[in-house]
Amino acid sequence: KLYQRQEQLQGEGAQRKVHLWWLPMVANLIVCGVPAAIFALPIMPLAAHLAAFALGWLAVGGVVLTLVGLKCSDLKEQLTLVLPARGRKEIHGS
């Protein structure tokens, strides 16, 4: 049992972590930033430029909120997937 526990502890260190804290920020930039860039084209009417301004600030606000969340809470740890290491097969005994 001691050897099995030692192997289990060594196996835990070989896990891969995938951080997903940046995903909502990037999604917000795409959803708000792309239309803002399109509405900011010179051929668009004045109302589209106002919409581009508002969408641009929404995109910036999403980035700021993500950065504040990283500073004020453990957002990185909460949005982390822990995956088993590649190439290692788990052997579960009974």
Score class of each variant (00 low, 15 high):
A14D: 01
I38F: 13
A40K: 01
A48Q: 12
A40S: 10
V31T: 06
S73F: 13
W57G: 01
R16P: 06
I43C: 04
I38T: 09
P42M: 02
L29W: 02
G33Y: 07
F39Y: 14
R16S: 11
L58M: 09
A36I: 00
S73V: 03
L46C: 08
F53D: 09
L65K: 08
A52D: 00
L81A: 04
E12P: 05
A52I: 00
A48Y: 11
L46K: 08
G11A: 15
R16I: 14
L46W: 13
L55E: 02
A48N: 11
T66N: 12
G69D: 03
E12K: 14
L41D: 04
S73K: 09
G69E: 03
L70R: 12
Q8S: 14
F53V: 05
M44C: 10
L70I: 15
Q15F: 15
G33I: 02
A27D: 05
Q6L: 15
V34C: 05
P24Q: 03
L50Y: 15
P45W: 10
A52Y: 00
G56Q: 03
V64L: 14
E12R: 14
G13K: 14
R16Q: 15
Q6P: 06
Q78I: 02
R16H: 13
Q15E: 12
C72S: 07
L41K: 04
Q6I: 15
Q10I: 12
Q78V: 03
H19P: 05
D74V: 01
L29D: 00
P42C: 02
A36N: 01
M44L: 10
A48L: 08
H19F: 15
L58Y: 07
A51L: 15
V18I: 11
L41P: 00
A51K: 04
P45R: 11
A54C: 11
P42K: 09
M25S: 03
F39Q: 07
A40T: 00
A52C: 01
L23N: 04
Q10C: 10
K71E: 01
A40I: 00
P42G: 08
T80S: 05
Q8F: 15
L75E: 02
W21Q: 06
M25H: 00
G11S: 15
H19V: 11
A54T: 09
A59L: 07
G61T: 08
L46I: 09
P35G: 02
L20M: 12
R5Q: 14
L41M: 06
P35L: 02
M44K: 13
N28Y: 05
P45K: 07
Q78L: 11
A27G: 03
P24L: 04
D74C: 02
A54F: 14
Q78S: 06
I38P: 01
C32H: 15
L81H: 01
T66S: 13
A59Y: 11
Q15I: 06
L41G: 03
L81R: 04
E7V: 13
L67H: 11
C32Q: 07
V68E: 09
F53C: 09
Q8R: 14
V31F: 09
W21E: 11
L79H: 07
V64P: 01
L75N: 06
R5I: 13
F39N: 09
H49L: 03
L20A: 08
L20I: 07
C32L: 01
R16Y: 10
C32P: 01
C72Y: 09
M25C: 06
H49P: 05
V63P: 00
L50H: 12
A51Y: 05
P35H: 03
T80F: 10
A47G: 03
K71F: 06
S73R: 06
L23W: 07
A40M: 04
G62H: 14
